[in-house]
């Protein structure tokens, strides 16, 4: 540990050399909304939900290294308005019908929307045509709900050493692909014990036959808001 500090909404946050703003903030017990970040995986900086104003500029806090004396603004109306717009875009780009989703109440996208007081998707829906891959005996892969956070890609590649998942295409054409001859999850070496089976923040990689083991209304984020469970410490699902 060094005794370097930066300011987060006026609070003094100590950081170790090499830490990012988000890592230091979470270690200090502060919540900055985020979706594509996982404390055990290399940051990707793609969802932009963790954006903060750093000495006047908007930066992704998960990839911006902490620097001595920097002034970081996170919990401001302006920053939260921009985060909400990003989350609204994620909703309209996919097909998120929460009332029929097994992940409802445990979903980080949904819980982050609650946190940002999002009451409507605001934008026009894309209603994209996307498939469901039910070929794996233990897992369902529902592309309708994938937010392309790449957590499964990083977990499978860097922790499981399997590279089951990848992101293909560019921009709006970006999509999740499965590394198997047929492109189906059931034909890959994906297994329930994989780290990649545990990191999906939404209802895209779902364990079969468990969806309704906890009633709606009693699930993770029904009980406590995401800001309480997602400010450091072990992953809760």
């Amino acid at each position: 540990m060094s005794d370097s500090c930066f300011s987060l909404d006026g609070a003094s946050i100590a950081f170790a050399a090499g830490q990012t703003i988000l890592q230091a903030a979470m270690d200090a017990g502060h919540y900055i909304p985020h979706l594509c970040f996982h404390p055990e995986l290399k940051p990707h900086g793609s969802c932009k939900v963790c954006s903060v104003r750093v000495d006047g500029n908007m930066m992704a806090s998960c990839t911006t290294p902490a620097r001595q004396g920097m002034k970081v603004e996170s919990a401001t109306t302006e920053v939260d308005d921009q985060r909400r717009a990003v989350v609204q875009m994620l909703f309209v780009e996919g097909n998120h019908f929460c009332p029929s989703c097994e992940q409802s109440g445990r979903c980080k996208l949904q819980a982050t929307a609650y946190e940002l007081q999002m009451t409507s998707p605001h934008f026009d829906h894309f209603f994209p045509d996307r498939a469901v891959d039910a070929s794996h005996p233990d897992f369902l892969l529902d592309f309708n709900r994938c937010i392309l956070c790449s957590l499964c890609v990083r977990a499978s590649r860097d922790v499981d050493q399997k590279a089951v998942f990848g992101l293909a295409g560019r921009g709006i054409g970006t999509r999740l692909i499965v590394n198997s001859e047929s492109g189906r999850l059931g034909d890959s070496d994906f297994a329930a014990t994989d780290k990649a089976a545990q990191v999906c923040p939404v209802g895209a990689i779902l364990r079969k036959r468990q969806g309704f083991n906890v009633p709606i209304g009693q699930r993770t984020y029904d009980v406590a808001p995401i800001r309480e469970s997602d400010r450091g410490g072990p992953e809760k699902r």
């Binding site: 909703f91 998120h96 019908f97 929460c98 009332p99 009451t119 409507s120 829906h125 045509d129």
Partner: peptide
């Protein structure tokens, strides 16, 4: 409600 806000269940026919 969900249907007024994002189409909801009836919008599942959109595909």
């Amino acid at each position: 409600g969900a249907c007024a806000i994002n189409g909801g269940l009836p919008a599942q026919r959109n595909h």
